[in-house]
Amino acid sequence: MAMKKKRYALVIDSRKCINCKACVVACKAENNVPIGNFRNRINEERKGEYPKLSINFEPEQCHHCAEPSCVRVCPTGASWQRKDGIVLVNYDECIGCRYCMVACPYDARYFNEEQGVVDKCTLCSHRVDKGDTPACVETCPSKVRVFGDLEDTSSRIHELLSTRRYRVKEPQTGNGPQLYYLL
């Protein structure tokens, strides 16, 4: 049976984000992320002064770039990309040189001191492969995050990206980031 081509991505409606950090906690629990490290974060952008103060919350994690610079620089091939676009680290091959951390324009990676390897968001590939959604997507109470396959024209994220305006962060990095922020 011929497999249909897949391209996983996340659409993020950051205006709905209330900075409850449920996604951060869910990710840590799901993936056993060491204390002090995070695979996702909420960026806060403040504008103006009190009382005319506004804050934007913008969830961010690995962008699972189309042209991932982390994969390009890895000397051992430990950082690699699946056919469906998910960028992963093969922990057995990682020597802990941290070149990929330096080379990631989105600071999406962290160093696991205990194991001496680099780690980051896996887009919960273990859940996705079973047909589930990533833990952060499932847990988000304000439905900020939409996970799906860009190649599937009937998917929700396909619909969102074809009807709504959106942006990606710093496209000038040339990495082809795949977190789509709705405007």
Binding site: V73, C74, P75, T76, G77, C94, I95, G96, Y99, V118
Partner: peptide, 25 residues
Amino acid sequence: DLGNWYRFYKLFIHFRWESPMSIGS
């Protein structure tokens, strides 16, 4: 300085021409 220094030999069982560190090793 590597996270796993004893794995340094892995630098020499792979060759990745896109990685300056690989070529440099």
